[in-house]
Design a protein around this nucleic acid. Structure first.
Lengths: 113, 113
DNA sequence: GAATAGTACTTGGCCATACATAGTACTTTA
DNA sequence: TAAAGTACTATGTATGGCCAAGTACTATTC
């Protein structure tokens, strides 16, 4: 039980939420997502992202289309489905509640952080 | 992939953080913790909490003493060790950063939620 | 045009954790 | 002594992040 591992555990589920949000803002492919997550200091590697995207696809939350690239193989550009948009809404509420519950326990208030 | 399962995934790791916080505020035993978590709308069941406490104990983050009860078997009253207090501090920073990163991606600011 | 490098996506295995469920142990009460 | 309640323990399942290796396509270089 080390700090690094706990950080990994904390990311679970949250990553899915973040990915859906990124996709909801416009069509993107995997490398775009990794870059955006990295900018936000949420490190993600390919081996995490690609399986996640496949799960989202299989669950019908996202869909993609192949787009040819000038510099390499074609890319999968993702966008949300209606189901995905609905799911994301529910997830947002869950996240907000979770943050609120955690703040309550850790005795922080969102107002003065 | 349903909402309920994702909620479970979101809780992973965060629960450990909350438990350490609760213990840091004074000596408590398992039922106290479950009650406090329930009040904060973070549902936890015995099968989750007890193994977690055992992990924390084995990692040296918490210690306990047996206290006899007037109504039932003796209870384990937990408190943080020095290592645990230090660990909790690191976890707090991780959590704050994670919330911040997520807010950035979801385009919320903590100031006006 | 064959070899090399770069980009994008895929797959299999490992580990940690939440949860359900069943079980153990102790105390009080009838 | 049996029954009920409380506290803790143990086992098995499923999920998901991560590592590492691999596949496939394109462009570049000789």
């Amino acid at each position: 039980m080390n700090l690094e591992n706990t950080q990994v555990q904390m990311r679970k589920g949250i990553l899915e939420y973040c990915i859906l949000h990124i996709i909801s803002r416009g069509e993107v492919y995997a490398s775009d997502m990794i870059e955006e997550l990295t900018v936000a200091h949420m490190i993600v590697v390919e081996g995490t992202l690609y399986p996640l995207l496949t799960r989202l696809k299989n669950a019908g939350l996202v869909e993609y289309k192949w787009v040819e690239s000038k510099s390499g193989p074609p890319r999968k550009y993702y966008k949300l489905t209606e189901i995905g948009a609905h799911f994301l809404k529910g997830l947002s509420e869950t996240w907000d509640e979770l943050v609120q519950s955690t703040d309550q326990i850790t005795q922080k208030s969102k107002a003065n952080v």
